[in-house]
Design a binder for these strands. Structure first.
Lengths: 209, 209
DNA sequence: ATTTATATCCCCCCAAACAAGGTATTTAAT
DNA sequence: ATTAAATACCTTGTTTGGGGGGATATAAAT
C-alpha cells in the first residue's frame, strides 16, 4: 500500500458526514483528500485544481443532483473515477448513475475498509459496487423463466426489436418469409398484441427478451 | 463466521484445479463441499442430492458448456446461487452467463479469500464479480460522448428502436409526422445508413443509444 | 450582424412491409 | 397417439418506409 497515492474529492452536502469521511479516508497512508464540497456548484469552481483521481459523490445535493453532476464533473476532470456514495438503492437511480458515467455505486452502510478498497479498485479500472447493487445490476441482464414464447419465437422477436424487416429476418435465419410471418402471428396471439411495438414493449417489460 | 453453513458444489473439468478448490474452500469453517463434478452431465445425476447453496461453475467443460448448463442447473436446484469461475473475460461470454441466471462472475486469478467472501456474498443475495468484470458490466450501461446525433435525434432513434411507427412517435412527442421524417432523414445521413435496422445497429454498436 | 445548428413543418412518389384471416406438413417429445 | 414446435403456403387490405425536393423559426455562436 505504500506506493499508491490517491487524490480524493468529496461532494456531500451533510457537513457531519463529509467530515466523517474526510477523517476516515484522509488518515490512511496513500489516501489524500484534496477537496471537499457541499454541492456541485461549489465543486465546479475548484475541483479541477484538486486533481482528483477519485470523486465520492452523493446523489441528493442542493442544486444540481449528483446524478446530473456526473457528466459535468467528467468534463471538468476527465481522468477522475466517480463513485456514487448514497443511501438510495432504487433501480432507476442506479442505472441512471451508471449510464451517466459513474465507475461505481456504494451505499452509505459500506464499512470504511470497503470504501478504501473501492477507491483503490476504481482507480485501477474496477467497478466497485455494494453487493446488493451488484445483484440488481446483474438481474437487469436476466430473463424471465416463464415466457410463453418458444425459443424460436423469442429469437424472432429479438430480431424484430433490432428493426429488421421480416424479409431480412427470414434471410438471416434461412427460413421462408411465410414462416417468419407465422411465428409473428403466434407471438402476437400469445402476447395479445397487434403490433410489433406493443410486442416489443410487453416482452421487454416482462423480460421475455 | 461460526453461524454460517454453506453447501458448495464444484463443476470443473480440470482435476487438479478442482482438487485445489476442494482443499481451499472445504477447509474453512462454515464452508462444506458437498459435491464435485467434472462436467454438467456428471453433475446432473447427483447434484440435487448434494443440496448446494452455491455452485462454482467453470465455462469450458466437456459436453454442455458452463454457460448452457446454468439454466439446467437452476432447474435441478432452484435455490442454488451459481457463480461462474473462469479464465475467460470476453464481454459476450459474461453477458450470456448473467442473462442465463448466474449470480456472479469471477476470474480464476481471484485470491482464495475473495472466493470465500464471494460464496458468502452470493448466498446472501449479492452479486460477486471480479473488479474488471464489474467495470465491463457497468460500461455496458454507458453511452458514447461523441455521438453525432442531437438530443432530439437520439430521442427519436430510441423510439424507433422500440418498434414504434413514425406516426406513433409523432403523436407521442407532440410533433408532426413530417418533423419525425425530417429527423430520420438527418439521422440516416449522419450515420450514413439507409434503413432503420442499420441505424439502430450502428447506434447501438457505438453506444449512441 | 451574420452565420450555424437545431427543431420544426410541407409536398411528392411508390415499393415494401405489416397485420389478420385461413390451412397444412414434418419432426420431436410425452 | 397426442401435442407442441417449426416449417411453409395463400389471400386481402392498409400502413409504413425511404428518397427526393424544399421552407421557416429560434437560439447560440462568431
Amino acid at each position: 500500500m505504500q506506493d499508491l497515492n490517491i487524490n480524493i474529492c468529496l461532494v456531500e452536502d451533510d457537513e457531519t458526514i463529509r467530515e466523517g469521511y474526510e477523517y476516515l479516508i484522509g488518515n490512511n497512508e496513500g489516501y489524500k483528500i484534496t477537496g471537499s464540497f457541499a454541492s456541485y456548484e461549489d465543486a465546479a469552481k475548484k475541483i479541477a485544481k484538486c486533481d482528483p483521481d477519485v470523486i465520492l459523490l452523493d446523489v441528493e445535493l442542493p442544486g444540481i443532483s449528483g446524478i446530473d453532476a456526473i457528466p459535468k464533473l467528467k468534463k471538468l476532470v476527465p481522468e477522475a473515477h466517480i463513485i456514487i456514495l448514497t443511501v438510495y438503492e432504487q433501480e432507476l437511480l442506479i442505472f441512471r448513475a451508471l449510464a451517466n458515467g459513474a465507475a461505481g455505486y456504494l451505499t452509505k452502510d459500506t464499512p470504511p475498509k470497503k470504501i478504501l478498497a473501492s477507491i483503490k479498485e476504481a482507480m485501477e479500472g474496477g467497478g466497485p459496487m455494494s453487493s446488493h447493487i451488484a445483484r440488481m445490476v446483474i438481474q437487469s441482464f436476466q430473463r424471465s423463466e416463464e415466457s410463453p414464447l418458444t425459443p424460436r419465437e423469442t429469437e424472432i422477436l429479438e430480431q424484430i426489436a433490432t428493426g429488421k424487416s421480416r424479409k431480412r429476418i427470414a434471410e438471416e435465419l434461412f427460413i421462408d418469409l411465410e414462416t417468419v410471418k407465422s411465428h409473428i402471428k403466434n407471438i402476437y396471439s400469445k402476447l395479445n398484441v397487434h403490433s410489433k411495438a406493443d410486442a416489443i414493449k410487453l416482452a421487454k417489460d416482462n423480460k421475455f427478451i
